[in-house]
Amino acid sequence: MANTAAINGINGLRDIRRSPASHLAAALEAGSIQGTVVLNEGPFQTMAGVRVDPRSEEGARIAAVTGGLPARCGDVAGTDRVSVLWLGPSEFLVVAPEEAHDSLGGDLIGSLVAALGEAPGQVVDLSANRTTFELSGPRARAALEKGCALDLHPRSFTVGTALNTEIGNIPVVLQKTGEESFRLFPRASFADFLGRWLLDAMREFASPEVP
């Protein structure tokens, strides 16, 4: 309960925070086709960029905080609250619900910083760096395939993996959260572009399929 109170007002700043694609909310709703492909912007997340050698002692300490570090490209480690995405051999993105942030009563960033200590590496609060798009539906993969060169077929891109790639020519972290649902993490400055690009990619599915 204390967390909820904190979210409601840290000096009023939380109330005026706007997500990078908030101006597209109505367009995303209008462009979504229920039962076919649905796009919406997810809630704020607490994100931390971590650079640490996963085989080192400090890497083990960080892994103890996050619930593990992914070992290879595509892997997602962590717990049900915190997920750790593999960005590089020594670079990880920690994603957690907003209330995990220290300013809202959580302790994620602080405990990561404490776990790293004076050891080589870095922990950076990137909560405002990326926004989250949630794309789901039977045609979600078809929409993504218009601008992503990866093999998105379920046999190679399995549920619970995340890849750092390009979608619509911009760098995006693409996470597969379910058989037909994807999470896209574009940088905040690309949110408008990617939102509109996805809406354009989804538009054909509103019409009946031409055999």
Binding site: R72, C73, G88, N164, E166
Partner: peptide, 11 residues
């Protein structure tokens, strides 16, 4: 060497 085969535009 880390990610497997990827499109040239990523490089």
């Amino acid at each position: 060497p880390n990610c497997g085969s990827r499109d040239e535009t990523e490089f």
